[in-house]
Nucleic acid binder design. Sequence first.
DNA 1: GTGCGTGTTAAACT
DNA 2: CAGTTTAACACGCA
Length: 259
Amino acid sequence: MPELPDLQVFSRNLTKTLKGKTLERIGLDITPKSGLSEKELSKTLSGKKLHAVARVGKQLCFDFGNDAQLFMHLMLHGKLVLQDKENERPKNVIASLELSDKALYLTDFQKAAHLTLNPPPSGAVDALSDDLTPKWLVEKLRGSRAKIKSLLMDQKVIAGIGNAYADEILWEARIAPESIAGKIPENAVKGLAKAIHHVLTDAEKQILKGHPDLIAGEVRDFLQVHQAHKEKSPTGSKILHATVGGRKTYYTDEQELYH
DNA sequence: GTGCGTGTTAAACT
DNA sequence: CAGTTTAACACGCA
């Protein structure tokens, strides 16, 4: 399952490859729960030029101009396949976009990946947005009784952080995942805001370095603590395992528990 | 064969 | 009521 830094790299590479191309045809093989139809997609997007592909939260936004933004959520197993138009179509296709000489397929054996057209803004602050300032985060956590890891992964609060990077960010900030959000002192919260930005942008750089043309899959071999078989953090502490918010969590006793 | 792992959603809980 | 937690979903893979 690709996470935010992977999606960031995908969006870069898709923009590089597809920018300026005209959408000639769009096909829907699975009707999404939203009821969005192939007809409506076609009516709104056909003939339009792709301006750019951006990452918004955990989604990719294909921007064809005003009121023509196609959002794509990969969910757990969604995969993009980009090939020349004449090649054979891949398996488990959810949707297909023909952009001049290229065909872009969204595939998912589990059929959970989906598209939406011009969705209303979610109200959450994107994890890499400039609006996610230390001050904003201090405000957001004030009075919250939720565990900090759950709150970081709450897409209605901050958009884009998944299970693996939540662990990485909390380790970087030296805050225990089960800490109660509202009990974390202001200084530590400010450090957390910096850790969010640092961990995510650094991960993007690492992925780009090793996999410059990536548009599918995920790379996380550089993660510091969220790795099933890793025994010690970079600073030599034993990596501990727990379940927080119903999710597998990796942490160390270097991280302070506030409660 | 068995159970893990993950994002979202709806339902349950406090 | 609003905020928070939990379980269910689907299924390839270790």
